[in-house]
């Protein structure tokens, strides 16, 4: 197992290099650049200014040199400085990462708890009205785009009913309070989690249905085990293994969805930071975000695979 992990980590390095190269190149091909986004050409003598600023930011160098500088900085533990605000990228990200982790974490928990629960109920009560309505909800949840759901939630709960705040992490200017933070978290976490809930629900349902009819479930009952033990230890223990994999695969989509939700709800996390960086062509921040999310995705894939082997003794890596 240790060798396996080591190999996976080593393989991650060229993957990360590849990702950063590709993104760097694509980002540099975007029309316009950071300086033009900040300085309009109506300004007199804009040309000199633009040239000057670009020189300062290193944008006049050829692309591979710019990439090389970025990598060089990276190896010294420095992610560079934001073009827009001048802050170090590491502090820009560090200030916003906890908010995103909170949002993604809660959304994931909601999705897992609700999705698995509904999927299990749906499968155990197959063909009942409960099953049909959950399945319908599942289709709807997968089909409805995150942003649409987010906007509908804001409209209903914030604007119309006035129950919850429309945006932000907390009430601006007030001292931090957990209940205030949670009130702001509910709508975005639901918007982000609901689509995932539907997907987990469908996978869980399918998996449980398949496992339910397996022979060893019959054996378990034949041994006189109660329904609760049969359901948990024999059915779910097997049925949830593929669901764990699905959860692991969903993490990247959670990242992407978080970006959309953060924009709608002005949730000050790294997703919002990323969108602002893209709009402003803030290359160091873009690269910092891409690197971070690539690392997190690779890590979560690795952890999922390890968990898979922990849960299913038939899977062994060497």
């Amino acid at each position: 197992m240790f060798n396996y992990i080591l190999r996976r980590l080593l393989v991650s390095i060229p993957i990360l290099i590849g990702i950063t190269v590709i993104v760097f190149f694509i980002a540099s091909q975007m029309p316009g650049d950071a300086v033009l986004a900040m300085i309009s050409t109506d300004t007199p003598q804009a040309e000199d200014l633009v040239k000057l600023r670009r020189g300062q930011l290193g944008l006049d160098l050829p692309i591979y040199e710019q990439y090389g500088r970025w990598v060089g900085q990276l190896l010294h533990g420095n992610l560079g400085f934001s073009f827009q605000s001048g802050e170090s990228v590491i502090s820009v990200i560090a200030a916003r990462l906890p908010a995103t982790l909170e949002l993604m974490g809660v959304a994931l928990i909601i999705a897992i708890i609700l999705g698995v629960f509904l999927g299990v109920v749906s499968a155990l009560k197959q063909y009942s009205w409960l099953d049909y309505s959950f399945t319908f909800f599942g289709f709807a949840g997968i089909s409805i785009p995150d942003f649409f759901l987010g906007m509908v939630l804001v409209y209903v709960f914030s604007i119309e009913l006035g129950l919850l705040p429309s945006s932000g992490i907390s009430t601006a200017g007030n001292a931090f309070s957990l209940s205030d933070n949670l009130r702001h978290l509910i709508l975005p976490a639901f918007a982000l989690g609901l689509a995932r809930t539907a997907s987990f629900m469908r996978y869980t349902r399918a998996s449980v249905l398949e496992v339910m009819n397996n022979d060893y479930v019959r054996t378990a009952r034949a041994k006189g085990l109660g329904e609760r033990l049969v359901t948990t230890r024999h059915i779910l223990r097997n049925a949830l293994i593929p669901v764990v994999t699905v959860i692991g695969i969903t993490l990247p989509t959670l990242f992407g969805g978080a970006v959309i939700i953060e924009v709608i709800f002005q949730w000050a996390g790294i997703g919002l930071m990323f969108i602002n960086a893209v709009t402003g062509r803030d290359s160091p921040v873009i690269m910092g975000y891409v690197l971070l999310s690539a690392v997190i995705v690779l890590a979560s894939n690795l952890i999922t695979d390890i968990m898979y082997s922990v849960l299913d003794p038939r899977i062994r890596y060497d």
Binding site: N214, D215, Y216, R218, T219, K223, G224
Partner: peptide, 25 residues
């Protein structure tokens, strides 16, 4: 009935590979 199943009356099945839970010892 559950007190009898597996206790007073036991049953073995056709395919032991699928009749045993693969993830439990």
């Amino acid at each position: 009935m559950r007190k009898i199943r597996g206790n007073r009356i036991a049953m073995i099945f056709q395919d032991p590979m699928t009749s045993l839970n693969p993830v439990l010892s």
